[in-house]
Nucleic acid binder design. Structure first.
Lengths: 243, 243
DNA sequence: AGACTTTTAAATGTCAGACAAATAAAAACT
DNA sequence: AGTTTTTATTTGTCTGACATTTAAAAGTCT
């Protein structure tokens, strides 16, 4: 591992990249201990603060963890689905908020992805998943629920639907997309009437899942997408022209 | 923004989180300039190296960019789809390699996601996307292509298929999943016979896209998934029992 | 000998101060 | 007015030091 002192990038960025490459390529395996900061600064011929900046970059990506004390140091971190998931949520959320992604675009993506696992969820769901979905539907039907709480429960419902597919890779990818949409969803004020409608659709989805009827799940998700986009459209219309 | 000196986390992690929160909440908007490192170290009552470690953490997530010189400093970065995409690829790749995700699981996720945008791609593709797909198919048919190059072209083909959906959010989510699978795919040695088969399927996909026949695209993707998994299964079998 | 306590060494976390390098704005000079 | 020079600001890097944590080694007592 070397660094090029005449490259434009910062030394700490170069060092971070060198170590990152070593991890991705498998040269450094999970739980392997990196050389100490003092040793790294010798190897790379830079000062300790520079090495530390590089290590913090890697820590920010959950690629390493550090431990103090004797026999401490920096260790290659086993990237868990949860770590990856939370990173994805942060990234997706910012991406949506910073790039003026329209509600329609985000919504379309979300439901397209969700429909991708509907068939698997119908086939493989366990009683657990179904129970979670029913519980969230019940919560959604409680009167006096704030819009935020309603949306949060909506996210939990769809999360359960995705998890029911029993594929952790799918869960990690989709849950991020679904959760990232929550801020956009929160901009919608749900009338009592629209909540009823959504809950009815959720019930149909749960029923279809229980009946292992993939086609019905898909059809209902399409309806839910259409309805959600209609709601957003109405909100936008009312904001433009408050009658 | 404050930090709690008796919290377990490192000061630099706390400061990074405080600034991250300010960005996510919209308190700091895109292209806003953060206070200089000297000012931040005063505000947070920590030294400059500690502030710098915090800033490097944020830079690693593409949340800020820094510029040297007068009127330089750290600026809130507009997270581009490309930045988000490359982060996702890194994360997904590591996730697959570190968690012993089976080929079947990853493959299932990949094709489930890809089929999610097949209908949109059939409906919305431009001549550009189709041309890219055809070009990659042509490249795949060249003799003497290494397995790595064949896989890379495969990724490019599927990338074009996903992009044809015309939804950048979908592209960002899916392309990461597809690309992350490449290392797993590279473990397969493609015989001349299997390449032919895959190219034939690619051709059928391109034809179906051109005909805007969503059902045919979906059906062919299912075939391709089945075939890919069969290939991987054969490879595993041959490795276990080299006849 | 065995269990408990103390010491020690190694490592990260933090700090202070300094200089280098880049860069834009201000000043000086045609 | 246009060009060059100077200057101030800010990040990038280095050196050296001390604080804190932690596991292992050494010591001590029963």
């Amino acid at each position: 591992m070397k660094v090029d002192p005449k490259k434009p990038a910062d030394l700490s960025a170069q060092i971070a990249q060198a170590i990152r490459d070593a991890i991705v390529s498998g040269e450094l395996i999970v739980d392997a201990r990196l050389p100490s900061e003092a040793e790294l600064s010798e190897q790379f011929k830079v000062s300790r603060p520079t090495v530390r900046e590089a290590l913090k970059r890697l820590a920010a990506q959950s690629l390493i963890r550090t431990q103090r004390g004797a026999s401490g140091g920096a260790f290659v971190n086993k990237l868990s689905f949860e770590d990856a998931y939370s990173q994805q949520v942060t990234t997706s959320t910012l991406l949506l908020s910073m790039n003026a992604v329209s509600f329609d675009t985000a919504c379309e993506a979300r439901y397209a992805l969700e429909r991708a696992c509907a068939a698997l969820s119908a086939a493989r769901h366990t009683p657990d998943h179904l129970a979670t979905m029913r519980a969230e539907i019940y919560r959604q039907s409680q009167p006096g629920l704030t819009d935020e709480a309603f949306c949060a429960s909506d996210v939990a419902f769809h999360r359960a639907l995705v998890d029911a597919a029993g594929n952790p890779v799918l869960s990690y990818q989709l849950a991020g997309a679904v959760e990232a949409m929550q801020p956009l969803m929160n901009m919608i004020t749900f009338s009592a009437r629209s909540r009823e409608e959504i809950i009815a659709l959720h019930n149909r989805i749960a029923d279809s899942i229980e009946a292992r009827d993939a086609v019905a799940v898909d059809r209902t998700l399409v309806e839910l997408e259409t309805y959600t986009r209609q709601l957003a459209h109405d909100v936008a219309e009312r904001r433009r022209n408050p009658a």
